[in-house]
Design a protein around this nucleic acid. Structure first.
Lengths: 146, 146
DNA sequence: CCTTGACCTGGAGCCGGCTCCAACCCCTGG
DNA sequence: CCAGGGGTTGGAGCCGGCTCCAGGTCAAGG
């Protein structure tokens, strides 16, 4: 266990990032890291705190649906060092827009789901009362199918 | 084209739902429909407006990440008719929670992304000024990796 | 009559993102 | 000395959700 001078084993990084060791090696193969991982005697990977930070960013980008190739590109730019900030900015802005679109879509889906939840709650509470609690979820018909 | 008395071809349903004809047949095989699709001479599918409404619900459930097996279950309950509303309600409530969790996660991811966008904007505008625009995105360190 | 186009079927293929396997290495403690 | 635990590798497998293919049927129009 290379704990001296903040070197971390793959298992420790897995714990800290929530990724599996499989996934960590996979990400490395996929070129998602900003720099080659150091190796200890016997070829074991030795990560630095820096790597963990980067991986945490990766986790968040993944969680927000950024595909691996895009993360790879971002990693590549980051690895290149200063000078390409506009490229990184563009990439992030694009991703921000897809996240906003996701949020919008998810929000509208939630409207429908909540509408239906209310419908069923009413059916169960009031015998099966009040014919449709008016409130077509944002644009589009309530589509009371199902 | 069976346009009389509101019968729709698979192609028309594809247009109206945004799903491909492939996907429509696939969903049918997967048991996502609430009732068997009627067939015209030659075995061609004939959909009713009702089916389109249900499929639009499916699209929204998919868009919000409900897996096919869950939709199948919901379809099964809906097909059974009245009497199982509590089952449907439970299913929808569970899904609502996963959607809320997604929204939460996505929102937090967005915080990080916007933070980084701001960082790069500042670098590009002000030469590369103001050392880190303070504002750790909700809990957790800003992790300025990358 | 023949083409065109929309439809049918069963089954195969693809893509993204992991996830696991076999076989091996190495360090540590008992 | 030897067992166990945690590494290493290349490559295979899996899962969800489509997506497509080959080969066929049918109806309408030129």
């Amino acid at each position: 266990m290379p704990s001296d001078t903040d070197g971390l084993s793959i298992g420790q990084v897995a714990e800290r990032t929530g990724l599996s060791v499989h996934t960590l090696r996979f990400y490395e193969r996929e070129g998602l890291l900003t720099r080659p991982v150091r190796r200890a005697a016997g070829g074991r990977r030795v990560y630095a705190e820096q790597d963990v930070e980067w991986l945490r960013v990766c986790v968040i980008l993944r969680a927000s649906g950024m595909p691996l190739p895009a993360i790879r590109e971002y990693a590549r730019l980051s690895a290149e060092g200063p000078g390409n900030e506009s490229g990184r900015l563009e990439l992030l802005r694009r991703h921000r827009e897809t996240v906003n679109a996701q949020l919008e879509l998810l929000g509208r889906s939630l409207d429908l789901i909540e509408f239906k939840v209310r419908v069923y709650e009413d059916i169960l509470d009031h015998g099966h009362g009040c014919a449709l609690p008016a409130e077509p979820p944002r644009q589009e018909s309530p589509a009371p199918a199902g």
